[in-house]
Design a protein around this nucleic acid. Structure first.
Lengths: 217, 217
DNA sequence: TCGGGCTTACTAACCAGTAAGTAAGTGTGG
DNA sequence: CCACACTTACTTACTGGTTAGTAAGCCCGA
């Protein structure tokens, strides 16, 4: 065993480790998305990649750990289309949110996964609750900062706590619209309603008309 | 002494039927609220009223039927504080929504139950999905009508589809804020944020300032 | 040949729903 | 007014199903 232990398995000819894990993560996203975490079983996930549930456990150890990696996987996919750019600030952030909503209307699965897991996470002792709570905290921070930036840009002074309230409202409206859209896609135009709501909140908060959609599109 | 027994509705000696059912419904609301429908078992519900799970089934037949009655129970409790008055229209409706949010901040359990079940309901074939979807439809109808009423009152002409978009946004923001509040009550002032968001959406929609909160309360 | 990927086989727990029995009530005929 | 018939509210015990997780071994590729 001289140089044998050194091979880090970089070129996978076999659908090995990394690749299989990705397959499983994608399958788990679909399963947890369509059935929820508690109702979606390891067997369901395993079946989608053509192995047994024990095979899944071989890669992820436990169902909880699999969930955690699914959540991080979603983040990775989400950030991916930003192409390395960090999350924008100011008005650009809100345009980004509107664009995300438009993209989401074409990715029902991932939206459903997010909605189901977020809803489930408010149950006692749910393994995803800290992840979701932290996610909300981070988002509120980023969005309220963007509100402050836009306000400064337009020389508007905001009352204490207003940026935070606006940030919470923006996140809330996005999540809530996703729920309604998932249950009745015909009744709610996810992209339009989201853009409308964000503009409304910003306009009312800043006291001046804010547009985040491109003209004539 | 005219023992003509005019006992129309005598007091039952036993905590019979109706009473027990209410106890179970209250318990089920707590259980489904704190653990979700799938994760909350009939045994959990039964334990809270000091009977066995078979006893619960004696009263409700199946877990699905119990859920249905829980949902209707919530509606009954919700409408109850309106004291027989029908749901108001126009601006009054939005004030009512803000008041409800304020009340909700004191009834974590029922808010949690609603949030959990709504989230769960977007999973495939969930027994509550039609109930939730219908609820959203009805609410959107009522709220969009109220928007139209207020617009007419103020002689504002709204673009096609705007009342519906505003209605969806109002419902969305209420649900979304509940989620954030449940996960982090310190970070979100449910009553204030809800009132703020509703005012924002109405103000932006109608183009004139709308106030729904009482001055100095 | 060796180790990682995976399977088969199993365990222990849990769950909804059924069935049958019991005890405590209610209604009624004599 | 009481005995007997019946109903109601529940229990215990069980069935059939599903689940996460464990253990041990097989197979294949490098």
């Amino acid at each position: 065993m001289s140089e044998t232990t050194e091979q880090a398995a970089p070129k996978p000819k076999r659908p090995s480790r990394a690749r299989r894990r990705e397959e499983i993560l994608a399958a788990a996203t679909r399963v947890f998305g369509s059935k929820g975490y508690h109702q979606g079983s390891l067997g369901d996930v395993a079946a989608q990649v053509g192995i047994t549930h024990a095979g899944v456990l071989h890669h992820f150890g436990s169902k909880d750990k699999l969930l955690w990696e699914v959540l991080e996987y979603r983040d990775r996919v989400d950030v991916q289309h930003l192409e390395g750019k960090h999350i924008p600030g100011g008005l650009e952030l809100f345009r980004h949110l509107a664009v995300t909503a438009r993209l989401n209307a074409e990715r029902r699965g991932i939206v459903q996964a997010y909605a189901v897991l977020t809803g489930e996470s408010v149950t006692d002792g749910h393994p995803a609750s800290t992840w979701v709570a932290e996610r909300f905290t981070v988002l509120r921070g980023e969005i309220s900062q963007a509100v402050r930036d836009v306000a400064a840009e337009r020389a508007v002074t905001l009352p204490e706590g207003e940026p935070e309230r606006a940030a919470a409202a923006v996140i809330a409206v996005m999540d809530g619209l996703q729920l309604q859209w998932l249950l009745d896609p015909e009744a709610v135009d996810l992209a339009a309603a989201t853009a409308f709501a964000i503009e409304s909140i910003l306009t009312a908060t800043l006291g001046t008309t804010v547009r985040i959609t491109e003209a004539a599109d």
